[in-house]
Design a protein around this nucleic acid. Structure first.
Lengths: 151, 151
DNA sequence: ACAACTTTGCAACAAAGTTGCAAAACAATG
DNA sequence: CATTGTTTTGCAACTTTGTTGCAAAGTTGT
């Protein structure tokens, strides 16, 4: 659900979503629209479990797995590394495309509420590697307390 | 196994391992020595599966789980974030203690051979956070090709 | 060497993820 | 808008990964 916005906005959003799917060469189905909508209306990251809960109406676990896999492969979302053995996904920025993720922003994971924030504004600092090593992607994960969870 | 070193060195290494365990308040058992030895003789990170393979002699899966948990809790090893839903562990440096991990070095994961290197020499750059956010730990994971896997 | 305590291995269980296949939904035509 | 070909979904069954309780075995300290 898009919240309390009017019908016109809902239709707009719906078309935006459909277009994202089409330009990724994915057919536009109810489950995909629902999951993509969830990502668009969340500014943090989502785990498989979150999606399973939110998309309350009957949607198979397996469909969620496959949808997420498809989205990752097509460059719509990307995986954020975690220490708790749970895969978290977040929307990609424009520079990402099929098979080529260029995600250079910092992720912040709150140790209290476990929300994952994408800090787009902040650039990933460049790190010099030992000789023989080449970088294709750098991920920065910062753990700590977010603004909401401060005492 | 320590390789082809002489008997004296093996005994030395054995004592070092026992001391690490003792100062962490863990009793010295065969499984723990074997797993800790594995970490000491690997300069990268190990996943549960790696340990299960290497420690070929009969050692229960469950013992490995519990040993790793104990090591993490006591500050002997720490978890490295990954994108592939597999928990990887690496030895902690001296600054780590029970319940308090101060691991500030960069990790490099080779996309070819999936070896995880700890780049101790390289400092983690400091990142400025939005107001209200406080950092407790920063992790940097770099993906790319390692020296061995270069064509 | 003995008693108190910790760790191990087994069994059983729970959670997370994958694969094959038939039915349903979608896309693209006329 | 109906039909055909393709893609996606949902189900069942299975694999892999991780957890818990408990008795037997091992470790520690005296």
């Amino acid at each position: 659900m898009i919240g309390s916005s009017g019908t016109k906005e809902v239709i707009m959003q719906d078309e935006i979503i459909a277009n994202i799917l089409k330009s990724a060469n994915l057919s536009v189905t109810a489950s995909r629209k629902k999951i993509l909508n969830l990502f668009l209306s969340t500014n943090g990251a989502l785990a498989h479990a979150d999606i399973e809960q939110e998309a309350d109406e009957k949607m198979d676990r397996i469909t969620i797995y496959r949808t997420l896999q498809a989205f990752v492969q097509k460059g719509i979302i990307h995986i954020i590394p975690t220490t708790d053995n749970s895969i978290r996904y977040a929307l990609c920025k424009d520079e990402c495309s099929e098979g080529h993720h260029h995600d250079q922003h910092v992720h912040f994971v709150c140790s209290e509420c476990h929300t994952t924030y994408c800090l787009e504004q902040i650039n990933v600092p460049h790190v010099k590697l030992p000789s023989g090593f080449t970088e294709s992607q750098t991920e920065v994960i910062i753990n700590g307390l977010c603004a909401k969870c401060h005492a």
